[in-house]
Design a protein around this nucleic acid. Structure first.
Length: 536
DNA sequence: CCTAAAATAT
DNA sequence: GATATTTTAG
Protein backbone atom coordinates (compact mmCIF):
# COMPACT_ATOMS: atom_id res chain seq x y z
CA UNK A 1 0.00 0.00 0.00
CA UNK A 2 2.59 2.44 -0.93
CA UNK A 3 1.23 5.71 -1.98
CA UNK A 4 2.37 8.05 -4.58
CA UNK A 5 2.83 11.68 -3.87
CA UNK A 6 -0.52 12.41 -5.36
CA UNK A 7 -2.21 9.94 -3.22
CA UNK A 8 -0.63 11.24 -0.15
CA UNK A 9 -2.11 14.58 -0.74
CA UNK A 10 -5.44 12.93 -0.73
CA UNK A 11 -4.69 11.39 2.58
CA UNK A 12 -3.60 14.50 4.22
CA UNK A 13 -6.66 15.16 6.28
CA UNK A 14 -7.72 11.65 6.82
CA UNK A 15 -7.62 11.29 10.55
CA UNK A 16 -9.82 14.25 10.93
CA UNK A 17 -13.00 13.33 12.63
CA UNK A 18 -11.95 9.89 13.67
CA UNK A 19 -13.37 9.06 17.04
CA UNK A 20 -11.13 8.02 19.81
CA UNK A 21 -12.15 6.42 23.02
CA UNK A 22 -9.74 7.32 25.72
CA UNK A 23 -9.72 5.36 28.89
CA UNK A 24 -7.34 6.68 31.44
CA UNK A 25 -7.70 6.66 35.15
CA UNK A 26 -5.41 9.58 35.44
CA UNK A 27 -7.40 12.69 34.83
CA UNK A 28 -4.47 14.84 34.04
CA UNK A 29 -2.96 12.40 31.71
CA UNK A 30 -6.28 11.96 30.00
CA UNK A 31 -6.74 15.65 29.57
CA UNK A 32 -3.36 15.97 28.06
CA UNK A 33 -3.84 13.18 25.62
CA UNK A 34 -7.25 14.37 24.70
CA UNK A 35 -5.89 17.78 24.06
CA UNK A 36 -3.22 16.50 21.79
CA UNK A 37 -5.54 14.29 19.88
CA UNK A 38 -8.00 17.05 19.40
CA UNK A 39 -5.34 19.28 18.10
CA UNK A 40 -4.96 16.72 15.41
CA UNK A 41 -8.64 16.73 14.69
CA UNK A 42 -9.49 13.50 16.34
CA UNK A 43 -12.67 13.46 18.29
CA UNK A 44 -12.07 12.23 21.77
CA UNK A 45 -14.31 10.74 24.37
CA UNK A 46 -12.63 10.33 27.67
CA UNK A 47 -13.47 7.81 30.28
CA UNK A 48 -12.00 7.47 33.65
CA UNK A 49 -13.46 4.17 34.54
CA UNK A 50 -13.40 1.10 32.55
CA UNK A 51 -16.98 0.12 33.09
CA UNK A 52 -18.06 3.45 31.72
CA UNK A 53 -15.94 2.98 28.70
CA UNK A 54 -17.23 -0.48 28.15
CA UNK A 55 -20.81 0.47 28.42
CA UNK A 56 -20.20 3.28 26.01
CA UNK A 57 -18.67 0.88 23.59
CA UNK A 58 -21.47 -1.56 23.84
CA UNK A 59 -24.21 0.97 23.71
CA UNK A 60 -22.87 2.93 20.82
CA UNK A 61 -20.12 1.01 19.18
CA UNK A 62 -20.37 3.16 16.15
CA UNK A 63 -19.13 6.08 18.12
CA UNK A 64 -15.60 4.89 18.28
CA UNK A 65 -13.02 4.05 15.74
CA UNK A 66 -10.10 3.41 17.95
CA UNK A 67 -9.40 3.25 21.62
CA UNK A 68 -6.48 4.24 23.73
CA UNK A 69 -6.45 2.53 27.03
CA UNK A 70 -4.15 3.26 29.83
CA UNK A 71 -3.03 0.43 31.95
CA UNK A 72 -1.42 0.94 35.29
CA UNK A 73 -0.55 -1.19 38.20
CA UNK A 74 -3.81 -0.31 39.81
CA UNK A 75 -6.18 -1.09 37.06
CA UNK A 76 -4.19 -3.82 35.58
CA UNK A 77 -6.78 -6.45 35.25
CA UNK A 78 -9.52 -4.10 34.43
CA UNK A 79 -7.86 -2.89 31.32
CA UNK A 80 -7.39 -6.35 30.12
CA UNK A 81 -11.03 -6.76 30.40
CA UNK A 82 -11.60 -3.84 28.17
CA UNK A 83 -9.24 -5.33 25.71
CA UNK A 84 -11.06 -8.57 25.74
CA UNK A 85 -14.46 -7.09 25.63
CA UNK A 86 -14.02 -4.45 23.05
CA UNK A 87 -12.56 -6.81 20.55
CA UNK A 88 -14.00 -5.04 17.62
CA UNK A 89 -12.38 -1.81 18.47
CA UNK A 90 -8.77 -1.34 17.59
CA UNK A 91 -7.26 -0.73 20.95
CA UNK A 92 -3.98 0.85 21.74
CA UNK A 93 -2.64 0.19 25.16
CA UNK A 94 -0.51 2.67 26.90
CA UNK A 95 1.24 2.86 30.18
CA UNK A 96 3.98 4.60 31.97
CA UNK A 97 4.99 1.33 33.39
CA UNK A 98 7.17 -0.49 31.03
CA UNK A 99 6.80 -4.10 31.54
CA UNK A 100 7.53 -6.31 28.65
CA UNK A 101 5.31 -9.07 29.85
CA UNK A 102 2.43 -6.72 30.29
CA UNK A 103 2.95 -5.41 26.85
CA UNK A 104 3.11 -8.91 25.61
CA UNK A 105 -0.07 -9.76 27.27
CA UNK A 106 -1.80 -6.76 25.84
CA UNK A 107 -0.74 -7.61 22.38
CA UNK A 108 -1.68 -11.18 22.90
CA UNK A 109 -5.09 -10.11 23.98
CA UNK A 110 -5.58 -8.17 20.85
CA UNK A 111 -4.15 -4.76 21.44
CA UNK A 112 -3.02 -3.30 18.20
CA UNK A 113 -0.15 -1.49 19.74
CA UNK A 114 1.41 -0.63 23.00
CA UNK A 115 2.61 2.90 23.46
CA UNK A 116 4.72 4.08 26.26
CA UNK A 117 3.73 7.13 28.08
CA UNK A 118 4.05 9.92 27.77
CA UNK A 119 2.14 10.01 24.58
CA UNK A 120 3.64 12.56 22.34
CA UNK A 121 1.97 13.99 19.31
CA UNK A 122 4.18 11.88 17.23
CA UNK A 123 2.93 8.77 18.81
CA UNK A 124 -0.65 9.79 18.58
CA UNK A 125 -0.73 11.35 15.21
CA UNK A 126 -1.03 8.22 13.20
CA UNK A 127 -3.13 6.00 15.32
CA UNK A 128 -5.64 6.14 12.52
CA UNK A 129 -3.59 3.50 10.85
CA UNK A 130 -5.10 0.98 13.14
CA UNK A 131 -8.53 2.02 12.09
CA UNK A 132 -7.71 1.57 8.50
CA UNK A 133 -5.95 -1.63 9.15
CA UNK A 134 -8.92 -2.90 10.98
CA UNK A 135 -11.24 -1.79 8.29
CA UNK A 136 -9.39 -3.85 5.81
CA UNK A 137 -8.58 -6.84 7.82
CA UNK A 138 -11.62 -7.57 9.70
CA UNK A 139 -14.62 -9.59 8.85
CA UNK A 140 -17.90 -7.80 8.67
CA UNK A 141 -18.31 -9.09 12.08
CA UNK A 142 -16.04 -6.58 13.52
CA UNK A 143 -16.46 -3.98 10.97
CA UNK A 144 -18.72 -1.76 12.86
CA UNK A 145 -20.92 0.68 11.26
CA UNK A 146 -18.55 3.41 12.05
CA UNK A 147 -15.73 1.62 10.48
CA UNK A 148 -17.35 1.02 7.21
CA UNK A 149 -17.26 4.56 6.11
CA UNK A 150 -13.63 4.59 6.89
CA UNK A 151 -13.07 1.54 4.92
CA UNK A 152 -14.98 2.90 2.06
CA UNK A 153 -13.31 6.18 2.02
CA UNK A 154 -10.01 4.49 2.09
CA UNK A 155 -10.96 2.29 -0.75
CA UNK A 156 -11.93 5.33 -2.65
CA UNK A 157 -8.73 7.03 -1.89
CA UNK A 158 -6.90 4.00 -2.93
CA UNK A 159 -8.54 3.83 -6.22
CA UNK A 160 -6.30 6.14 -8.16
CA UNK A 161 -3.31 4.30 -7.00
CA UNK A 162 -4.71 0.99 -7.91
CA UNK A 163 -5.62 2.17 -11.29
CA UNK A 164 -2.13 3.30 -11.80
CA UNK A 165 -0.76 0.02 -10.90
CA UNK A 166 -3.18 -2.04 -12.86
CA UNK A 167 -4.81 -0.03 -15.52
CA UNK A 168 -8.16 -1.46 -16.35
CA UNK A 169 -9.35 -1.27 -19.87
CA UNK A 170 -11.30 1.77 -20.86
CA UNK A 171 -10.71 3.64 -17.67
CA UNK A 172 -7.00 3.53 -17.99
CA UNK A 173 -6.08 6.58 -19.92
CA UNK A 174 -6.97 9.13 -17.36
CA UNK A 175 -5.60 7.50 -14.31
CA UNK A 176 -2.69 9.74 -13.78
CA UNK A 177 -4.68 12.82 -13.94
CA UNK A 178 -4.51 14.56 -10.63
CA UNK A 179 -7.98 15.91 -10.96
CA UNK A 180 -9.16 12.42 -11.33
CA UNK A 181 -7.69 11.54 -8.07
CA UNK A 182 -9.34 14.38 -6.48
CA UNK A 183 -12.67 13.35 -7.77
CA UNK A 184 -12.40 9.98 -6.31
CA UNK A 185 -11.14 11.24 -3.11
CA UNK A 186 -13.58 11.09 -0.32
CA UNK A 187 -13.69 13.12 2.76
CA UNK A 188 -13.11 11.18 5.85
CA UNK A 189 -16.58 10.12 6.74
CA UNK A 190 -15.88 9.91 10.39
CA UNK A 191 -18.07 12.59 11.75
CA UNK A 192 -20.91 12.52 9.37
CA UNK A 193 -23.46 10.07 8.28
CA UNK A 194 -23.09 10.26 4.65
CA UNK A 195 -22.07 6.84 3.78
CA UNK A 196 -20.87 6.63 0.31
CA UNK A 197 -23.13 4.48 -1.68
CA UNK A 198 -21.64 1.09 -1.33
CA UNK A 199 -22.01 0.39 -4.93
CA UNK A 200 -20.39 3.42 -6.30
CA UNK A 201 -18.57 2.88 -9.50
CA UNK A 202 -15.37 3.58 -7.72
CA UNK A 203 -15.82 0.86 -5.25
CA UNK A 204 -16.81 -1.55 -7.84
CA UNK A 205 -13.77 -0.76 -9.77
CA UNK A 206 -11.66 -1.23 -6.77
CA UNK A 207 -13.28 -4.49 -6.20
CA UNK A 208 -12.52 -5.57 -9.67
CA UNK A 209 -9.01 -4.44 -9.45
CA UNK A 210 -8.47 -6.22 -6.27
CA UNK A 211 -9.98 -9.26 -7.74
CA UNK A 212 -7.61 -9.28 -10.54
CA UNK A 213 -4.76 -8.97 -8.24
CA UNK A 214 -4.79 -11.21 -5.33
CA UNK A 215 -7.96 -10.99 -3.49
CA UNK A 216 -9.30 -14.26 -2.41
CA UNK A 217 -12.18 -13.30 -0.33
CA UNK A 218 -15.63 -12.88 -1.36
CA UNK A 219 -16.78 -9.54 -0.34
CA UNK A 220 -19.74 -9.82 1.80
CA UNK A 221 -21.11 -6.64 2.93
CA UNK A 222 -23.42 -5.67 5.59
CA UNK A 223 -26.88 -5.19 4.43
CA UNK A 224 -27.28 -2.41 6.78
CA UNK A 225 -27.18 0.22 4.18
CA UNK A 226 -29.90 -1.48 2.40
CA UNK A 227 -31.87 -1.51 5.53
CA UNK A 228 -31.48 2.13 5.73
CA UNK A 229 -32.60 2.48 2.22
CA UNK A 230 -35.90 1.16 3.07
CA UNK A 231 -37.33 4.36 4.20
CA UNK A 232 -38.85 5.11 7.49
CA UNK A 233 -39.66 1.62 8.39
CA UNK A 234 -36.14 0.79 9.09
CA UNK A 235 -36.05 2.86 12.18
CA UNK A 236 -38.49 0.79 14.08
CA UNK A 237 -36.35 -2.18 13.47
CA UNK A 238 -33.08 -0.58 13.99
CA UNK A 239 -33.49 1.02 17.30
CA UNK A 240 -34.28 -2.18 19.00
CA UNK A 241 -30.87 -3.57 19.30
CA UNK A 242 -27.57 -1.98 18.95
CA UNK A 243 -25.64 -5.07 18.43
CA UNK A 244 -24.97 -6.04 14.99
CA UNK A 245 -24.39 -9.58 15.68
CA UNK A 246 -25.87 -11.30 12.80
CA UNK A 247 -23.55 -9.36 10.77
CA UNK A 248 -22.36 -10.03 7.39
CA UNK A 249 -18.84 -10.39 6.46
CA UNK A 250 -17.31 -7.41 4.98
CA UNK A 251 -13.99 -7.72 3.50
CA UNK A 252 -12.75 -5.28 1.12
CA UNK A 253 -10.11 -6.38 -1.17
CA UNK A 254 -7.84 -7.42 1.48
CA UNK A 255 -4.94 -9.21 0.08
CA UNK A 256 -3.54 -12.33 1.58
CA UNK A 257 -4.62 -14.96 3.93
CA UNK A 258 -6.52 -14.57 7.16
CA UNK A 259 -10.21 -14.33 7.31
CA UNK A 260 -11.22 -17.91 7.00
CA UNK A 261 -11.22 -18.17 10.70
CA UNK A 262 -13.03 -14.95 11.11
CA UNK A 263 -15.83 -16.34 9.18
CA UNK A 264 -16.20 -19.12 11.56
CA UNK A 265 -16.56 -16.57 14.24
CA UNK A 266 -19.16 -14.74 12.43
CA UNK A 267 -21.22 -17.77 12.02
CA UNK A 268 -20.82 -18.61 15.59
CA UNK A 269 -22.57 -15.54 16.57
CA UNK A 270 -20.28 -12.70 17.10
CA UNK A 271 -18.77 -12.14 20.44
CA UNK A 272 -20.87 -13.38 23.18
CA UNK A 273 -22.13 -10.00 24.11
CA UNK A 274 -25.74 -9.12 24.15
CA UNK A 275 -27.55 -12.03 22.78
CA UNK A 276 -30.73 -11.16 24.44
CA UNK A 277 -32.57 -11.71 21.32
CA UNK A 278 -31.22 -15.12 21.11
CA UNK A 279 -32.62 -16.35 17.96
CA UNK A 280 -33.05 -12.96 16.49
CA UNK A 281 -29.57 -11.87 16.31
CA UNK A 282 -27.99 -14.98 15.15
CA UNK A 283 -30.97 -16.13 13.38
CA UNK A 284 -29.25 -15.60 10.18
CA UNK A 285 -25.84 -15.06 8.97
CA UNK A 286 -24.30 -14.29 5.75
CA UNK A 287 -23.38 -17.24 3.79
CA UNK A 288 -19.75 -17.78 4.06
CA UNK A 289 -18.01 -17.95 0.84
CA UNK A 290 -15.46 -20.35 -0.22
CA UNK A 291 -12.48 -18.19 -0.20
CA UNK A 292 -11.08 -20.07 -3.07
CA UNK A 293 -12.19 -18.54 -6.25
CA UNK A 294 -12.72 -14.89 -6.48
CA UNK A 295 -15.46 -14.25 -8.94
CA UNK A 296 -16.70 -10.76 -9.15
CA UNK A 297 -17.39 -9.75 -5.62
CA UNK A 298 -16.92 -6.26 -6.74
CA UNK A 299 -20.43 -5.44 -5.78
CA UNK A 300 -19.69 -5.65 -2.17
CA UNK A 301 -23.10 -5.02 -0.75
CA UNK A 302 -24.44 -8.12 -2.28
CA UNK A 303 -24.24 -10.43 0.64
CA UNK A 304 -26.71 -13.16 0.65
CA UNK A 305 -29.17 -13.75 3.33
CA UNK A 306 -29.14 -17.19 4.65
CA UNK A 307 -32.64 -18.15 5.51
CA UNK A 308 -31.88 -20.34 8.38
CA UNK A 309 -34.56 -22.33 10.03
CA UNK A 310 -34.77 -19.78 12.75
CA UNK A 311 -35.08 -16.96 10.35
CA UNK A 312 -37.65 -18.75 8.37
CA UNK A 313 -39.57 -19.49 11.48
CA UNK A 314 -39.62 -15.88 12.32
CA UNK A 315 -40.75 -15.15 8.89
CA UNK A 316 -43.57 -17.61 9.08
CA UNK A 317 -44.60 -16.37 12.43
CA UNK A 318 -44.76 -12.90 11.10
CA UNK A 319 -46.77 -13.97 8.15
CA UNK A 320 -49.14 -15.86 10.30
CA UNK A 321 -49.51 -13.09 12.70
CA UNK A 322 -50.33 -10.76 9.93
CA UNK A 323 -52.61 -13.09 8.26
CA UNK A 324 -52.83 -13.82 4.66
CA UNK A 325 -54.25 -10.52 3.74
CA UNK A 326 -51.73 -8.37 5.44
CA UNK A 327 -48.70 -10.38 4.79
CA UNK A 328 -46.71 -8.06 2.70
CA UNK A 329 -43.00 -7.58 2.79
CA UNK A 330 -42.89 -4.38 4.69
CA UNK A 331 -45.10 -5.59 7.46
CA UNK A 332 -43.45 -8.90 7.69
CA UNK A 333 -40.20 -7.15 7.94
CA UNK A 334 -41.41 -5.09 10.82
CA UNK A 335 -42.66 -8.01 12.70
CA UNK A 336 -39.57 -9.99 12.22
CA UNK A 337 -37.45 -7.35 13.74
CA UNK A 338 -34.37 -8.80 12.33
CA UNK A 339 -31.62 -6.40 11.88
CA UNK A 340 -30.36 -5.78 8.47
CA UNK A 341 -32.92 -7.79 6.73
CA UNK A 342 -34.22 -5.77 3.92
CA UNK A 343 -37.62 -5.54 2.55
CA UNK A 344 -36.29 -7.00 -0.58
CA UNK A 345 -35.02 -9.98 1.24
CA UNK A 346 -38.36 -10.53 2.76
CA UNK A 347 -40.18 -9.94 -0.43
CA UNK A 348 -38.03 -12.43 -2.12
CA UNK A 349 -38.57 -14.98 0.53
CA UNK A 350 -42.22 -14.30 0.48
CA UNK A 351 -42.23 -14.90 -3.17
CA UNK A 352 -40.68 -18.23 -2.75
CA UNK A 353 -42.96 -19.01 0.09
CA UNK A 354 -45.97 -18.33 -1.99
CA UNK A 355 -44.65 -20.19 -4.91
CA UNK A 356 -44.22 -23.20 -2.81
CA UNK A 357 -47.73 -23.03 -1.69
CA UNK A 358 -48.97 -22.41 -5.06
CA UNK A 359 -47.23 -25.40 -6.28
CA UNK A 360 -48.64 -27.39 -3.48
CA UNK A 361 -52.12 -26.08 -3.63
CA UNK A 362 -52.68 -25.17 -7.18
CA UNK A 363 -56.38 -25.16 -6.78
CA UNK A 364 -56.82 -23.44 -3.53
CA UNK A 365 -54.11 -21.06 -3.82
CA UNK A 366 -55.26 -18.85 -6.56
CA UNK A 367 -58.50 -18.60 -4.86
CA UNK A 368 -57.02 -17.71 -1.57
CA UNK A 369 -54.86 -15.09 -2.99
CA UNK A 370 -57.74 -13.70 -4.79
CA UNK A 371 -59.63 -13.59 -1.60
CA UNK A 372 -56.79 -11.87 -0.07
CA UNK A 373 -56.76 -9.14 -2.58
CA UNK A 374 -60.38 -8.50 -2.18
CA UNK A 375 -59.99 -8.25 1.48
CA UNK A 376 -57.11 -5.95 1.47
CA UNK A 377 -59.31 -3.18 2.60
CA UNK A 378 -60.04 -5.19 5.63
CA UNK A 379 -57.25 -3.77 7.56
CA UNK A 380 -56.24 -5.00 10.89
CA UNK A 381 -58.89 -5.87 13.17
CA UNK A 382 -57.60 -7.43 16.19
CA UNK A 383 -59.85 -10.21 15.50
CA UNK A 384 -59.73 -12.79 12.93
CA UNK A 385 -61.35 -11.57 9.93
CA UNK A 386 -63.76 -12.62 7.35
CA UNK A 387 -63.08 -15.92 5.91
CA UNK A 388 -61.65 -17.09 9.12
CA UNK A 389 -64.19 -16.61 11.80
CA UNK A 390 -63.26 -17.38 15.35
CA UNK A 391 -65.31 -20.41 15.68
CA UNK A 392 -63.40 -22.03 12.96
CA UNK A 393 -60.15 -21.49 14.54
CA UNK A 394 -59.79 -25.05 15.37
CA UNK A 395 -60.45 -26.38 12.05
CA UNK A 396 -58.43 -29.31 11.18
CA UNK A 397 -57.00 -29.76 7.86
CA UNK A 398 -55.51 -32.78 6.35
CA UNK A 399 -52.03 -32.51 5.14
CA UNK A 400 -51.07 -34.99 2.60
CA UNK A 401 -47.66 -36.45 2.91
CA UNK A 402 -47.17 -35.63 -0.67
CA UNK A 403 -47.05 -32.01 0.20
CA UNK A 404 -43.84 -31.34 1.86
CA UNK A 405 -43.74 -27.74 2.40
CA UNK A 406 -43.42 -24.56 4.11
CA UNK A 407 -46.23 -23.60 6.17
CA UNK A 408 -47.42 -26.98 7.11
CA UNK A 409 -46.23 -27.91 10.49
CA UNK A 410 -45.67 -31.50 10.95
CA UNK A 411 -45.73 -33.49 14.04
CA UNK A 412 -42.59 -35.07 15.19
CA UNK A 413 -43.71 -38.46 14.13
CA UNK A 414 -44.25 -37.38 10.63
CA UNK A 415 -41.33 -35.38 9.68
CA UNK A 416 -42.24 -33.77 6.52
CA UNK A 417 -39.75 -31.87 4.61
CA UNK A 418 -40.70 -28.33 4.71
CA UNK A 419 -38.75 -27.05 1.90
CA UNK A 420 -39.49 -29.33 -0.87
CA UNK A 421 -37.65 -32.30 -1.94
CA UNK A 422 -34.09 -31.51 -1.54
CA UNK A 423 -33.32 -32.10 2.05
CA UNK A 424 -31.45 -28.92 2.24
CA UNK A 425 -32.51 -28.33 5.75
CA UNK A 426 -31.88 -30.86 8.40
CA UNK A 427 -34.52 -32.19 10.70
CA UNK A 428 -34.67 -29.03 12.65
CA UNK A 429 -37.91 -28.31 11.03
CA UNK A 430 -39.81 -30.70 13.04
CA UNK A 431 -38.25 -30.05 16.33
CA UNK A 432 -37.20 -26.53 16.24
CA UNK A 433 -39.33 -24.66 13.91
CA UNK A 434 -42.63 -26.09 14.55
CA UNK A 435 -42.61 -26.93 18.14
CA UNK A 436 -45.00 -25.34 20.49
CA UNK A 437 -42.64 -22.57 21.09
CA UNK A 438 -42.82 -21.41 17.59
CA UNK A 439 -46.51 -21.30 17.26
CA UNK A 440 -47.08 -24.77 16.13
CA UNK A 441 -50.47 -24.47 14.72
CA UNK A 442 -50.11 -21.13 13.24
CA UNK A 443 -48.56 -22.47 10.19
CA UNK A 444 -51.50 -24.48 9.46
CA UNK A 445 -53.71 -21.61 8.75
CA UNK A 446 -54.55 -20.18 5.44
CA UNK A 447 -51.22 -20.49 3.84
CA UNK A 448 -49.78 -23.30 5.62
CA UNK A 449 -52.22 -25.92 4.89
CA UNK A 450 -52.80 -27.63 1.75
CA UNK A 451 -56.46 -27.74 2.14
CA UNK A 452 -57.78 -29.50 -0.77
CA UNK A 453 -60.65 -31.41 0.54
CA UNK A 454 -64.10 -30.15 0.24
CA UNK A 455 -65.75 -29.03 3.40
CA UNK A 456 -68.79 -30.16 5.11
CA UNK A 457 -69.86 -33.68 4.65
CA UNK A 458 -67.17 -34.29 2.20
CA UNK A 459 -64.71 -34.34 4.89
CA UNK A 460 -65.96 -37.68 5.79
CA UNK A 461 -65.85 -39.24 2.48
CA UNK A 462 -62.55 -37.70 1.95
CA UNK A 463 -61.13 -39.24 5.01
CA UNK A 464 -62.62 -42.55 4.54
CA UNK A 465 -61.42 -42.73 1.07
CA UNK A 466 -57.93 -41.64 1.71
CA UNK A 467 -57.18 -42.58 5.19
CA UNK A 468 -53.71 -43.50 4.30
CA UNK A 469 -50.90 -41.23 4.99
CA UNK A 470 -53.00 -38.34 5.96
CA UNK A 471 -51.58 -36.12 8.55
CA UNK A 472 -53.53 -33.75 10.53
CA UNK A 473 -52.43 -30.49 11.73
CA UNK A 474 -54.50 -27.91 13.23
CA UNK A 475 -54.95 -24.41 12.25
CA UNK A 476 -55.55 -21.80 14.74
CA UNK A 477 -56.64 -18.37 15.23
CA UNK A 478 -53.87 -16.10 14.28
CA UNK A 479 -53.16 -14.70 17.63
CA UNK A 480 -54.50 -17.31 19.84
CA UNK A 481 -52.22 -19.89 21.06
CA UNK A 482 -52.55 -23.09 19.44
CA UNK A 483 -54.30 -25.86 19.79
CA UNK A 484 -53.51 -29.39 20.11
CA UNK A 485 -50.64 -30.77 18.34
CA UNK A 486 -52.32 -33.94 17.57
CA UNK A 487 -55.72 -33.01 16.55
CA UNK A 488 -57.82 -35.95 17.14
CA UNK A 489 -60.81 -37.01 15.30
CA UNK A 490 -63.03 -35.36 17.79
CA UNK A 491 -61.64 -32.10 16.77
CA UNK A 492 -62.22 -32.93 13.23
CA UNK A 493 -65.69 -33.97 13.92
CA UNK A 494 -66.37 -30.92 15.87
CA UNK A 495 -65.15 -28.71 13.15
CA UNK A 496 -66.97 -30.53 10.50
CA UNK A 497 -70.10 -30.58 12.50
CA UNK A 498 -69.84 -26.94 13.03
CA UNK A 499 -69.35 -26.28 9.41
CA UNK A 500 -72.27 -28.43 8.59
CA UNK A 501 -74.52 -26.98 11.18
CA UNK A 502 -73.86 -23.47 10.13
CA UNK A 503 -73.84 -23.52 6.42
CA UNK A 504 -74.53 -19.84 6.31
CA UNK A 505 -71.18 -19.03 7.72
CA UNK A 506 -68.23 -18.49 5.52
CA UNK A 507 -65.99 -21.36 4.87
CA UNK A 508 -62.97 -21.64 6.97
CA UNK A 509 -60.08 -20.17 5.21
CA UNK A 510 -58.68 -22.52 2.75
CA UNK A 511 -61.81 -24.40 2.22
CA UNK A 512 -63.98 -23.89 -0.66
CA UNK A 513 -67.45 -25.00 -1.21
CA UNK A 514 -67.73 -28.06 -3.26
CA UNK A 515 -68.67 -27.65 -6.81
CA UNK A 516 -72.15 -28.43 -7.77
CA UNK A 517 -71.00 -31.31 -9.85
CA UNK A 518 -69.06 -32.71 -7.01
CA UNK A 519 -71.98 -32.41 -4.72
CA UNK A 520 -74.29 -34.07 -7.11
CA UNK A 521 -71.83 -36.78 -7.83
CA UNK A 522 -71.29 -37.43 -4.21
CA UNK A 523 -74.95 -37.50 -3.45
CA UNK A 524 -75.46 -39.80 -6.27
CA UNK A 525 -72.74 -41.98 -4.99
CA UNK A 526 -74.55 -42.19 -1.75
CA UNK A 527 -77.71 -43.09 -3.40
CA UNK A 528 -79.37 -39.77 -3.01
CA UNK A 529 -80.93 -38.79 -6.20
CA UNK A 530 -83.29 -36.12 -5.21
CA UNK A 531 -82.47 -32.99 -3.51
CA UNK A 532 -84.60 -30.66 -1.66
CA UNK A 533 -83.78 -27.34 -3.10
CA UNK A 534 -84.34 -25.66 0.17
CA UNK A 535 -81.39 -27.39 1.69
CA UNK A 536 -78.93 -26.10 -0.76
C1' DC B 1 -44.71 -0.40 -2.28
C1' DC B 2 -45.94 -4.86 -4.18
C1' DT B 3 -45.37 -8.78 -7.11
C1' DA B 4 -43.71 -11.29 -10.90
C1' DA B 5 -40.12 -12.43 -13.82
C1' DA B 6 -35.28 -12.38 -15.14
C1' DA B 7 -30.65 -12.71 -13.78
C1' DT B 8 -27.21 -14.67 -10.81
C1' DA B 9 -24.91 -17.31 -7.61
C1' DT B 10 -24.23 -21.79 -5.53
C1' DG C 1 -29.13 -28.89 -13.67
C1' DA C 2 -31.74 -27.25 -9.85
C1' DT C 3 -32.52 -24.06 -6.51
C1' DA C 4 -32.00 -19.99 -3.54
C1' DT C 5 -31.53 -15.13 -3.69
C1' DT C 6 -31.02 -10.85 -5.71
C1' DT C 7 -32.25 -7.56 -9.32
C1' DT C 8 -35.00 -5.59 -12.43
C1' DA C 9 -39.38 -4.36 -14.27
C1' DG C 10 -44.10 -3.05 -14.32
Amino acid sequence: MVCTANDLSAWKDFPKGLRVLLLDGDTDSAAEIKSKLESMDYIVDTFRYENEALSAVSSRPESFHVAIVEISTSNNNGSFEFLETAKGLPTIMTSSVHCISTMMKCIALGAVEFLRKPLSEDKLRDIWQHVVHKAFNTGGNDLTKSLKPVEESVVSMLLPQLENGEPKKEDSGKTNDASMIHQNDREPPAGNDKYPAPSTPQLQQVGRLLDDTDCHDYTNYSTEKESREQDGEAESIETTSSHRTAEVNATVGRPRETMVKEKADVVEGTKGENLQNGVDTKSYHAVSEKSSSCPNKASRKKSKIDWTPELHTKFVEAVDQLGIDQAIPSRILKLMKVESLTRHNVASHLQKYRMQKRHILPKEDGRKWLQRQKMQSNIYTNKPIMAFPPYHSNIVVPVGPLYPMWGAPSHPPSIIQMWGVQGYYPPWQATESWDSKSYPGVHANGWGCPVMCPPNGYYFSMFSQNPTGLHFSCAMDRRRNCVEHHPEEEVIDKTVKEAISKPWLPMPLGLKPPSTEYVLAELSRRGISTIDASTL
